[in-house]
Amino acid sequence: MTTEWDGLPDTVKKFMTALDARQGARALTVFTADAVVTDEGHDHSGRAEIEAWLAASVSESEYTYTTEFTGATTTGTTVDVEQHLEGDFPGGIADLHYRFTLDGALIDRLVIEP
């Protein structure tokens, strides 16, 4: 089912807005204790590893960029979000796919891929 931004689960919206605002501690609050995040082919398991990944992701980077929500689909406990990025990183443009698996109101699994 196609989902507009306002129709996304609050947990997903909270994560995406916290990540965009570079608020790693806020983003961490939406994960289960044993959640797994896969980004750039690497797994980050449990809150401590996810916290370290978020800290690195939201730290001041040498690149600046903007993000735009471009669409989402929801199937059961899975929410797929598409995000368009433009900035001064190599290539200048990227489209990312965030696949969230929810456990109740929290994120149990997140896979980020091009």
Rank of each mutant, 00 (worst) to 15 (best):
T3R: 13
T3Q: 14
T3D: 08
E4C: 10
W5N: 13
W5T: 12
W5M: 11
D6R: 13
G7L: 12
L8H: 06
L8Q: 08
P9E: 09
D10P: 08
T11A: 15
T11Y: 08
V12W: 01
T17K: 11
A18H: 03
R22S: 10
Q23G: 08
G24Q: 01
A25P: 00
A25H: 01
R26T: 13
A27N: 00
V30L: 03
V30N: 01
V30K: 00
T32Q: 04
D34N: 10
A35R: 00
V36L: 02
V37R: 02
E40I: 05
E40G: 09
E40T: 08
E40P: 00
E40S: 10
G41R: 07
H42N: 15
S45C: 14
S45N: 15
R47T: 13
R47Y: 01
R47M: 08
A48Y: 00
I50V: 09
A52W: 02
A52R: 11
L54K: 00
A55E: 09
A56Y: 08
S57Y: 06
S57V: 01
S57R: 06
V58S: 09
S59H: 14
E60H: 15
E60M: 11
S61N: 13
E62F: 11
E62W: 11
E62A: 15
Y63S: 10
T64W: 12
T64F: 11
Y65K: 05
Y65M: 11
T66A: 14
T66R: 14
T67S: 15
E68V: 06
E68K: 13
F69K: 08
F69T: 02
F69Y: 12
F69S: 03
T70N: 06
G71R: 08
G71P: 05
A72L: 05
T73F: 08
T73N: 12
T73D: 14
T75P: 00
T77L: 09
T78D: 14
V79D: 06
V81G: 01
E82D: 12
Q83V: 10
H84Y: 02
H84S: 06
L85W: 05
D88K: 06
F89S: 04
P90H: 02
G92F: 05
I93C: 06
D95G: 09
L96I: 04
L96T: 04
H97F: 07
H97R: 15
Y98P: 03
R99S: 14
L102V: 11
L102N: 06
D103F: 05
G104V: 07
L106H: 06
R109T: 15
L110S: 05
L110A: 09
V111W: 01
V111M: 08
V111F: 09
I112V: 15
I112D: 02
